[in-house]
Every structure is written in C-alpha cells, then in structure tokens.
Lab assay of single mutants.
Amino acid sequence: AVCQVIGMYDYTAQNDDELAFNKGQIINVLNKEDPDWWKGEVNGQVGLFPSNYVKLTT
C-alpha cells in the first residue's frame, strides 16, 4: 500500500469498479495516479474511490 487514509464520509459505490466504505473506516491506498480517484482496498475489496472523501492518517 502507498499509504492509509480514513473515510471522512460514507461512500456508496456507483459502479462495479468503485470501492464502498464507511466514515471512520481505514482504507489502504494502492494507487494515486489519478488525483481525484484513488485505488484502494478495504476488507479484501479493491476499487476506486474519490480522494476528497478521505483524509490521511497521521
């Protein structure tokens, strides 16, 4: 993983390639090539999510 982030809001996947997560959930970021849509993993599920829905862990 590149880094870990925390969901600031609940996110519901809109497409099959997206990653759903809940507020407060830890997401392992796998790829930040696109500044707006990062690739991440939660509980074995991998997908894209909007980078503005998360904050970096300290």
Rank of each mutant, 00 (worst) to 15 (best):
E33I: 08
Y53F: 11
A20Y: 05
D34N: 09
F49Y: 03
V46Q: 10
Q45M: 13
N15G: 14
G7E: 04
A13L: 01
T12S: 10
T12Y: 10
D16K: 11
S51V: 11
D36A: 14
G44L: 01
D10P: 10
G44R: 02
S51I: 03
G7W: 03
G40T: 06
D36S: 12
G47C: 00
A20W: 08
Q14M: 10
A1I: 15
W37M: 14
D34M: 03
T12A: 13
L56W: 08
Y53W: 10
K32C: 12
N22C: 15
L30C: 01
N15C: 06
F21V: 14
D17H: 09
G40R: 03
V5M: 04
Y9F: 15
A20H: 10
W37C: 06
D34K: 11
I27H: 03
L48N: 11
D34S: 11
T12M: 11
D10R: 09
E33K: 10
D36M: 13
Q45V: 14
I26S: 06
A20T: 15
L48S: 10
A13D: 00
D16A: 10
V5H: 05
V5I: 02
L19I: 09
M8T: 14
D16T: 11
L19V: 10
T58E: 15
V46Y: 09
K23N: 07
D17E: 13
V29C: 11
L56D: 12
K32W: 12
D36Q: 11
C3Y: 11
F21P: 00
Y53G: 05
V46F: 07
Q45I: 12
N43T: 02
W38M: 04
Q14R: 14
T57K: 13
V46S: 09
G24V: 01
W38I: 00
Y11M: 04
K23W: 02
N22K: 13
D16P: 10
N43P: 04
I6V: 15
N52D: 13
Y53N: 06
D16F: 05
E41V: 04
V46M: 08
G7C: 15
E18V: 04
V2P: 11
K23V: 11
W37V: 10
E33G: 10
E41W: 05
W37H: 01
N22M: 14
C3F: 11
W38N: 05
A20I: 03
V54P: 02
T58G: 14
V42N: 03
T57N: 13
E18L: 03
I27V: 09
G40K: 02
K32N: 09
Y53I: 10
D36W: 09
E18G: 09
V54Y: 03
V42I: 13
K23Y: 05
V54S: 01
Y11D: 00
M8Y: 07
T57R: 12
D10N: 11
N15P: 00
W38F: 01
A1K: 07
K39V: 08
I26R: 12
V46H: 06
